[in-house]
Design a protein around this nucleic acid. Structure first.
Lengths: 140, 140, 140, 140
DNA sequence: GTGGTCTAGACCACT
DNA sequence: GTGGTCTAGACCACT
């Protein structure tokens, strides 16, 4: 399981972890039935208080994403709440909208915002062709 | 002054307001010396408790964005901390990166992310030419 | 932490508390890193509303005197703004000057002012030798 | 009438003026029956809003310090509330005590406080002999 | 009218 | 337990 924590962020660590686990369950990156790290393992991996991880697992279990099997570990639910995928994506779009409005308020132009977006896409390690570039490549 | 509050958001109202005012001060949308709505006015406009607004104004004053003049109102500081503009933009890019990684985790492809981004740009009322469209323009 | 509130004073409670905490941070009476009472504790100790204490802690945090750690308490900043010590002392002298001019306007003579001053020093629990007394000491 | 305003002070201008006028009435520096400057004159002298002066005069009149005679001006009351002199002096001592405790909290030693006090006395233009100096002079 | 201070109390998030 | 956010409302001070 890959989790990335932004320690400086104003978003609480527990939420950062929870939303990333949720996303990976919904996207299938964490396949149904897969075992996730134990509370202690993940706590150590992220250098976070084990209690924090415990709360996150508890919450995600109550939400139907995970299943805790006493003595054997924590697993991605066999039937994760896939119905929530669209809701999560809607929320994603909503947040993207807010963030872009914020960028606009900071005086960033459409072109600058696009540049930042493509940069961020690259950093997120997505290869997919970029419109401008592919256009240039093919037409030239 | 234009402020948009997302009441459902997990980001506290006060922070939403604060970051929007900060951005507008830095971008010059709120020019130095301009009077901002009174605590009560803004509270009414946003249907938020006046105390919440007061706290925001207090914080922004301590940060150097605003100036409160007893009995006459609250104003954009004559010398707003413009030096923070770049820091704010860096923070914006950082947040954009986080959000896009989140979208990726939700299984969204680069193309889908781009579509969502352009949609959000449109909604943010930015006309600037879109790559796809510019293609159309050149081809015509 | 020792705080003394003059409830009858025209100086708001919150400012009285703030200036005393500031002074103790600068003088080292409250050593860097030390834990200060929780919002609720101090509120109870001083029989003041917790919100008032919270505001004070917020302000002092923004000024760099304190650090709040969510869930674990409030602490004297590791690097308190010692640079402000001289400024605070200058302010002290300025206020002393104002007060003494006021005493003069009330018709108090230099001798009376000195008597009041020595009395106040005694009450402030300072042993340091008094001019008059030291005279006695040297003469004995 | 001599009034000194500290514009940077956190004490409102109106209170600074009021307390100085009160003190001068009680001390007799402003003798009973004496005419004080008109609202406009004083406002101009102190470059303060006339409304502020008006409020001060109103307040002091209601307290018995001044008398306003329509068409001819404002005067020190023929029978100013001298009974308040002791109360004002008590208040002065109380404030002196608070201030000295504050100085102590700032880490100032008794000797430093005394030096500041004598300095302030000098600045307040009081000649009265200083204990230390006079002692030194005579004994040496 | 403006902002400033303070109380009271609810509910949430974090360790 | 800790701090964080928010509401509701009183009363004061300043222009």
């Amino acid at each position: 399981m890959f989790i990335r924590i932004e320690k400086g962020s104003s978003v609480p660590i527990s939420r950062q972890i929870a939303s990333q686990v949720r996303a990976q369950c919904l996207a299938g990156t964490l396949p149904a039935g897969a075992r996730v790290p134990s509370v202690r393992e993940l706590a150590e991996m992220l250098t976070v208080n084990p209690n924090t991880i415990l709360r996150v697992y508890e919450k995600l279990t109550s939400e139907g994403y995970l299943e805790r099997r006493h003595g054997s570990g924590t697993f991605v639910a066999l039937k994760p709440p896939l119905s929530q995928l669209n809701g999560q994506r809607d929320k994603f779009e909503e947040e993207l909208g807010q963030l872009i409005r914020h960028g606009r308020m900071l005086g960033l132009e459409a072109a600058e915002l696009r540049a930042a977006f493509e940069q961020a896409l690259d950093n997120a390690n997505i290869s997919g062709s970029h419109p401008q570039e592919s256009q240039g490549e093919t037409s030239t």
